[in-house]
Design a protein around this nucleic acid. Structure first.
Lengths: 153, 153
DNA sequence: TATTGTTATACTCTATAACTATA
DNA sequence: TATAGTTATAGAGTATAACAATA
């Protein structure tokens, strides 16, 4: 049912999608989104500790990237590694209290900016946009929902 | 009217927004989006030739970035500089026929991927998402619409 | 003196490939 | 042999600062 016209319209509006993201980041106080925040957010949203490979899968980036970031985040004291009882090759990763504080602060700052920019929006438009973005992500094949850590054999 | 709950929901769905963009790029044939495509797209959408500073403004990135990209795109033969009759400090930038071909091809390839992923979406949802994204971009302060080149004094 | 654009430098995000350790 | 993770290297996007030319 997707006509080429509608897709073309969407494509144009998606063209600047990274710009929107950057605008948001620029509107934030300096240091609010430290390097590697993405990993921090993913770990912060997860119910359980995650393996590095699982983080890479959820973010749809290469594990080598996650590995280097994790090392840095551990150095910062924001992420803690604990041994994986089921597999000696991997560790389980979780936020420290400090890491949680960084995530919570960044989230609040982002919320301030978004809520400020969207203060005239009707609530239902915001909800609709969020829902549509989520569906777009799924339709374009990007993983999102953290499934429970599977127990290996 | 924007409640914190709705904004939080939107923020979560925006977190992976660059991932969606990357998914799209990854789904494309190699070489389809050459470095600097963004500048190419902006020039391709403009009715008239643009100054470098104007491109930077429209993309909300630093002019130094545009400058280096333009140099590369001119080397590739995709962008042509012409003298600006109103101001000797700047040039006017436009696509060459080759550049136009690159833009058109990339657009079609992107359309194929998007239309494929969204083939089950009702048309009105696609339009609604495109509209909401456009409004989001405006509300968060990101410039989009190419205004006519102002004539300096 | 202010503005336009260029260049040098550096930082962030990402991927590929080669490697180590464990399964 | 296959998988999880690490490390080295490289490419792409971006910003800041110093600079040259023109207004």
């Amino acid at each position: 049912m997707a006509t080429p016209e509608a897709c073309r319209h969407l494509l144009t509006s998606m063209e600047g999608i990274t710009g929107v993201h950057r605008s948001l980041a620029k509107a934030l106080p300096a240091g609010c989104l430290p390097p590697g925040s993405g990993v921090l957010f993913v770990l912060g949203r997860s119910e359980q500790p995650l393996r590095a490979g699982r983080v890479a899968e959820l973010m749809d980036i290469d594990m080598s990237v996650v590995s280097r970031r994790i090392a840095h985040l551990v150095d910062q004291g924001w992420v803690a590694r604990s041994p994986n009882p089921h597999d000696g090759r991997s560790c389980l990763l979780g936020l420290t209290d400090q890491g949680r504080a960084v995530v919570d602060n960044a989230t609040e700052q982002c919320l301030d900016v978004v809520a400020g920019g969207l203060r005239d929006w009707p609530d239902e438009d915001i909800e609709r946009l969020a829902d549509l973005l989520e569906r777009l992500r799924v339709s374009l094949g990007h993983r999102t929902l953290p499934a429970p850590e599977p127990v290996p054999h």
